[in-house]
Nucleic acid binder design. Structure first.
Length: 422
DNA sequence: TCTGGGGTCCTAGGACCC
DNA sequence: TCTGGGGTCCTAGGACCC
């Protein structure tokens, strides 16, 4: 049996841990640039605030209903996530972190324990150690566990735990779940399934396999199998390195000079390089893109991207910057109001398995590596942006808008909470 | 009139996830 | 004024090979 444990309204819950006054109050967390709603408390959901709504569209509504608003604070959420995961791993050795707020756990190895009781214990323990409420669904496959989890949230608000260990419970969940709420069914497949008369997961299970294969490819077929209790997704016992790494950002305001775009690209490239070195990988290709604001109908639109092959796989900031700037030179067009750019490093290979270029000497590689290690070391101790490459410069024009940012309570000494005792 | 067949690799784009 | 960011996997079709 597989358990899916996920944090309820995770980002909002993180904010609530450090400001208990938010309890019972409608609260939302916004995406970068304070753009869209990406997390909502139950009270905010009850008010009808939808996921993904641009915040400026509901400004008046927010004020009217006194909705508490936060900019996203990923430093805080990342650290809280690690704490939650640590607690869960103490109960179940075999786990697989699926996202910042979700983890699969293999509970079949713990045969001596009743899964429901175990789930209750985990829930209680996570709440006590971190202050974060979680829901837990247990079933035969990952897909069914996802459904069980959702079922628990919707029908068991008290304990938020559901274990589908009997046939009638599985049937209950399948009949309860609309096709669009199945893990693996998005907008396209939702329309397709509805059009063909499949409304619930129970309906979908009865769709002919040939039809599913033809219309939804093997991915759809796998989802269907998983719903029937046949496991099709492999268990990932070790954390796999990423195959691509991307850093991209929309700007707080529109940008019109090449120099500013270069600064942004420089910073994003440097960020990609750091992430590469952290997972001990080198990239073989780099992808750069620029775009204008697609929502501004009154502006001329421009989108262009380019992918460059690197002669030698690398994770050196300097080397990657060279290619990124070359790419930007090719795709940049003056006269547009740019809104967003990004850099992606692709086709990653382990850093220790890279081949030297024909004209590269081993000593130059070693020197570059030593430089980067030093840069990372200094930045780690003194903050992320102390040492930079020339192209990054220091510029705040295109930085994020974050008007409602909470503090880094758990990762920065000056943000530690103070407790007064009389 | 009539122009092979089978395989691999790569890429772009689509679908999905949180 | 203002609309997120970061990923994965699969597939179709073209290029290329013998």
């Amino acid at each position: 049996m597989i358990a899916l444990i996920d944090c309820n309204n995770f980002y909002v819950s993180c904010e609530r841990v450090f400001d208990p006054k938010l309890k019972g109050k409608p609260t939302i967390v916004l995406s970068n640039n304070d753009g869209c709603v990406i997390a909502r408390s139950d009270e905010a959901k009850a008010l009808g605030i939808e996921m993904g709504t641009p915040s400026f569209m509901i400004k008046d509504f927010i004020r009217k209903h006194n909705v508490r608003v936060y900019s996203s604070n990923y430093t805080l959420y990342g650290d809280m996530s690690a704490r939650v995961m640590r607690v869960i791993k103490e109960f179940i050795p075999r786990t697989e972190i699926y996202s910042i707020d979700e983890i699969f756990a293999d509970v079949s190895s713990l045969t001596h324990t009743n899964p429901t009781e175990l789930a209750m214990q985990i829930r209680e323990s996570v709440m006590r150690c971190t202050g974060i409420p979680v829901s837990i669904g247990i079933a035969q496959t990952k897909t069914l566990a996802k459904l069980a989890n959702r079922y628990a949230k919707k029908t068991r608000p008290g304990d938020s735990v559901f274990c589908a260990d009997e046939e009638w419970k599985i049937q209950d969940i399948l009949a309860f779940t609309q096709v669009e709420d199945i893990w693996g069914v998005g907008g396209q497949y939702h329309r397709l399934l509805k059009k063909n008369g499949f409304h619930t997961a129970a309906d979908f299970i009865n769709a002919p396999e040939g039809w599913v294969r033809k219309e939804m490819a093997v991915v759809g077929l796998r989802t269907q199998q998983e719903l029937k209790g046949i496991a099709c997704t492999e268990w990932q016992d070790e954390v796999k390195g990423k195959k691509n790494i991307c850093t991209s950002r929309g700007f707080g305001k529109l940008i019109t000079t090449k120099r500013e775009v270069q600064q942004a690209i420089g910073t994003f490239t440097s960020s990609c390089a750091q992430k590469l070195r952290k997972q001990n990988s080198c990239a073989q290709r780099i992808h750069v893109f620029v775009q204008t604001n697609i929502h501004r109908k009154q502006d001329d639109q421009y989108f262009h991207s380019i992918t460059l092959d690197l002669t030698v796989p690398t994770n050196s900031t300097r080397e990657l910057l060279k290619y990124a700037m070359r790419g930007l030179d090719i795709i940049y067009r003056p006269g547009f109001k740019y809104n967003k750019t990004g850099v992606m490093v692709m086709d990653l290979v382990p850093a220790d398995q890279t081949q030297l270029g024909l004209f590269e000497s081993d000593t130059s590689g070693a020197k570059e590596k030593a430089t980067m290690t030093a840069v990372d070391g200094i930045n780690q101790v003194y903050g992320n942006d102390v040492v930079r490459m020339a192209k990054q410069e220091f510029n705040t024009k295109w930085k994020l808008r974050q008007n409602h940012l909470s503090k880094c309570y758990t990762t920065r000494f000056k943000d530690l909470m103070k407790v007064k005792a009389n």
